[in-house]
Design a protein around this nucleic acid. Structure first.
Lengths: 249, 249
DNA sequence: CGTTTCATTGAGTTGAGTCAACATGGGTGG
DNA sequence: CCACCCATGTTGACTCAACTCAATGAAACG
């Protein structure tokens, strides 16, 4: 853990997350240091990547929340995922060469930009780090898959419950949540667009969860009133986010 | 293209797909050859990977269709994706160390097994190939994301239309589809579980598409009766599957 | 303070689900 | 070679979860 402190503190959530997958040698830390470009700040609602944009940039999110989404013909949108500190922004778009979705900041954020050359150079110098990036990408996909299951086969109540539990788990990984709850800067409209529901219905479901003593989402704060009950209600499986320690020693 | 023929023919769909991303040197072809384990055959309905299984194997699908799915509490299932020749099976599970979903063959299939050591060795010897694998993983994720959008914000008609167009595009990449149609070995139950609908409703939607002269799905064959109309109906964007040629020269 | 954005609640509508019956057709055992 | 079976496909009648429309608070903001 002391090694982490050798790094620029602002980048820590990223390394913190990756260390769930592998432990880093000094050499590898040095390579990662190359990612440590000066961090940039963006106001809430800034568009970072636009669908169709070619050769988009990738970022590592250091602070704040971001949104990946797609816009549909009718003007509606589907939020694919929210990114929290430590997450990559737009890594997939970089590899596919054109962005297949939009990314914007949900709150004021700070992030460091990562270029394709940085990624390639890292791959060249450390296959283990390449694996780590692959692992991060796989984790992102696992999250998307889990939401796919929610949209396909869970009703509104289970869907909302599952969502808040999932973010509890993700935020816990970077030290931003406890079993009691966490800060969540999203509006009910955000939830609606992420969960394939209308904002009105989200509101009704939140009320039901509150009245049944399961959880409360109010004023930007999530409070778990009955964690175990919620886990049962949502059929939440923590396994896909539990790590028994680094895979690569 | 002549280089492709130097490889074991059975593995060709995979290399064929990857060449959309990059062109291969002779050295790289040699490295890829290491993947060329003897292919194995499995009967339809064989379980290849089970959710929760640790250290699962990965495969490259050579012939036939496979299904990735998750099972829910109530016994229902959500199909995450179907894999066609050239696709990886279970690559994500390998990197996450435990399988987070099930994989089974939908038809009789042949596949070659790929071990973690193979992947790691490849990464060590060729960062460019590592990038190619990363690209393949990104493509998979793009597909899952597109289905997420379908489940979240498209109605049944658009969803079904989009699905068949998407597989048309994917199969075309490995030479198994034309603008006229393709062979599709799935049942209406498969479609239902993939698209978050009931089998009964799938049936009604298929009838509607047929009666409106858009497309026909019958006897394991998809026929596009009005391709452009279908693209418009589904709001289908071919961009996320169109490649202008290899990114890496 | 007007204005805007977000949250809340009621009333009526609808897309998709469920249940149930029946058709078709390949496969299998007697 | 036939009779039956079981999986798949088809259709109608009824139900319900979630949507839309609409109106009203409440808090945030320049």
């Amino acid at each position: 853990m002391s090694k982490l402190q050798a790094l620029n503190g602002l980048q820590t959530p990223f390394v913190y997350k990756l260390s769930a997958f592998m432990s880093f040698s000094n050499d590898e830390m040095a390579i990662l240091d190359r990612f440590d470009h000066p961090q940039r700040s963006f106001a809430a609602g800034t568009e970072l990547v636009h669908e169709g944009q070619s050769n988009p940039a990738a970022y590592i999110l250091v602070d704040g929340w971001a949104i990946s989404y797609k816009v549909l013909r009718g003007g509606g949108r589907q939020i694919v995922d929210f990114q929290i500190p430590g997450d990559f922004l737009g890594l997939r778009s970089v590899l596919l060469r054109t962005a297949d979705h939009n990314i914007e900041s949900a709150t004021a954020i700070t992030a460091v930009e990562v270029g394709v050359p940085d990624v390639m150079a890292t791959f060249r110098e450390s296959p283990r780090l390449a694996c780590a990036v692959l692992w991060a990408l796989s984790s992102d996909e696992a999250i998307v898959v889990e939401r796919l299951v929610s949209l396909g086969r869970r009703d509104a109540l289970e869907r909302v419950a599952h969502f808040f539990l999932e973010f509890g788990a993700r935020l816990k990984l970077v030290g931003l949540a406890t079993r009691e709850g966490y800060a969540c800067p999203l509006s009910q409209y955000h939830l609606a667009d992420a969960l394939g529901l209308s904002a009105v219905h989200i509101n009704r479901v939140l009320r039901q969860l509150r009245e049944e003593g399961m959880m409360t989402f109010r004023g930007g704060k999530v409070t778990f009133d009955d964690f175990d009950g919620l886990v049962k209600l949502a059929d939440f499986d923590t396994a896909y986010m539990d790590f028994e320690g680094p895979l690569l020693k």
